[in-house]
C-alpha cells in the first residue's frame, strides 16, 4: 500500500495542515509520497521532505499549477494515480475543490473529511453537522480521501528525504485565475492556533472586535467569529468558525457573545477547553462550555485583558 498526500501550500510556504494529513496517512501505510504542485515551490518541497514519515517528495513545477486550480491539478493527480492505493488531501477549500474532481475522473467514490482511520479501508467521519459520526468502509481499490486536519496531530520532523521532479502534460483551457483578495493578519492561522477567541452577534459591531485584540495578543490566539457576526458584516467571512466556515480544535476556545447554534458548534466542539462568555444564562453554548461566565462582555473583556 502506498499513499499520495497532496501538499497544502500558499505563497511559497507549506501550510501546517500538511503535517496533520501525513499523520492520518501514517495510520494507513508507511510508504508516503507528498506531491507538491505549484510554481516556484522549491521551499515548499524542502519543508515537506522534513516531515516525519514522508518517504518521497515529488514536485510538479509549472505555471499552470500556480494557483492550484482544480482543472489542472486534478489532471496531474490522475496522471500519477496508478502508483498509489490512497490519495489524501486536507479538507481545506483547496483540497475540497480538487479531490472530488480527481475521484470522478478515476471513477471512484470519495470519502470526505475523515476524523479517524480504523484501517486502510475503514474511516470515521462526521455527518449531519457533526451530530453523528459515521464509520464507513470503502470497497474501492483506490481510496480518495479528504482529511479534517484538526482531528489529527501534526507529525514531527525527520532528516530530509529525496525530492524528485515530475513532468506533467496537464494543461487548463477551462478556467483562468483572475485575482485573489487575501485577508491580512499577523495573528496565527485560525486552523492552527493553540488558542482561539471568537466573537458573535453579541459584539454588536465590527469595531468592538478590537476588544478581542489585546486578549488575543496576550494568549497568542487567533480571532474567529460566528456566522451571525460574519453575516452582519462585522468581520470578513474567512474568520468564520462553523460547519460552513473553518473547523477548529484548539487547546482553548473562548466564545464571546456567541449563542452556540448547531452550525457554530460543528466547527469548534472538539476544542480541548471551551470558555463561554454570554449574558444569557440559557444560551446553548453553556451546555458545551467547560467554564461559563454569565456577564456582559463589554464589562468582562477589558477585565480579562488586564487579568492575563
Amino acid at each position: 500500500m502506498s499513499v499520495l498526500v497532496i501538499a497544502e501550500h500558499e505563497q511559497g510556504a507549506l501550510k501546517p495542515e500538511t503535517a496533520k494529513v501525513i499523520n492520518a496517512a501514517a495510520k494507513i501505510s508507511d510508504n508516503i509520497t507528498v506531491l507538491v504542485a505549484g510554481h516556484s515551490v522549491a521551499t515548499v518541497a524542502e519543508s515537506a521532505s522534513k516531515i516525519a514519515g514522508v518517504t518521497a517528495v515529488i514536485v510538479a513545477d509549472k505555471p499552470v499549477f500556480e494557483h492550484q486550480l482544480a482543472e489542472s491539478t486534478a489532471d496531474l493527480v490522475v496522471e500519477l494515480a496508478a502508483d498509489y492505493s490512497h490519495i489524501l488531501a486536507s479538507a481545506s477549500t483547496t483540497g475540497k475543490n480538487t479531490l472530488p474532481r480527481v475521484a470522478a475522473l478515476l471513477d471512484k467514490s470519495q470519502i470526505s473529511e475523515i476524523i479517524d482511520v480504523i484501517d486502510a479501508d475503514t474511516f470515521k467521519r462526521p455527518i449531519y453537522a457533526g451530530n453523528a459520526i459515521a464509520t464507513v468502509k470503502s470497497s474501492e481499490d483506490k481510496k480518495i480521501i479528504t482529511v479534517r486536519a484538526s482531528a489529527f496531530d501534526a507529525q514531527g520532523e525527520q532528516a530530509a528525504v529525496a525530492i524528485s521532479t515530475v513532468e506533467s502534460a496537464a494543461d487548463n483551457t477551462l478556467s483562468e485565475f483572475v485575482s485573489v483578495e487575501q485577508t491580512e493578519s499577523e495573528r496565527p492561522e485560525l486552523n492552527a492556533a493553540p488558542v482561539v477567541i471568537s466573537g458573535g452577534r453579541g459584539m454588536q459591531n465590527g469595531e468592538n472586535f478590537a476588544l478581542l485584540n489585546g486578549i488575543a495578543d496576550k494568549l497568542g490566539a487567533a480571532i474567529g467569529a460566528s456566522r451571525a457576526a460574519v453575516d452582519a458584516g462585522f468581520v470578513p467571512n474567512d474568520m468564520q468558525v462553523g460547519q460552513t466556515g473553518k473547523i477548529v480544535a484548539p487547546d482553548l476556545y473562548i466564545a464571546v457573545g456567541i449563542s452556540g447554534a448547531i452550525q457554530h458548534l460543528a466547527g469548534m466542539k472538539d476544542s480541548k477547553v471551551i470558555v463561554a462568555i454570554n449574558k444569557d444564562p440559557d444560551a446553548p453554548i453553556f451546555q458545551v462550555a467547560d467554564y461559563g461566565l454569565v456577564a456582559d462582555l463589554f464589562d468582562v473583556l477589558p477585565e480579562l485583558e488586564n487579568a492575563l
Binding site: 470503502s138 474501492e140 461559563g292 461566565l293
Partner: peptide
C-alpha cells in the same frame, strides 16, 4: 451499486457539563 458501506452511526462523544464561574478572576 454501492461502493461504500455504512458500518455504524454513533452519537459524537458528549462533552462533560462544565461549571459557571462567578467572575473574571475565578475564570483566569
Amino acid at each position: 451499486a454501492p461502493r461504500t458501506e455504512l458500518l455504524k452511526v454513533e452519537e459524537p462523544a458528549k462533552r462533560e457539563a462544565g461549571i459557571i464561574v462567578e467572575d473574571v478572576a475565578e475564570l483566569v
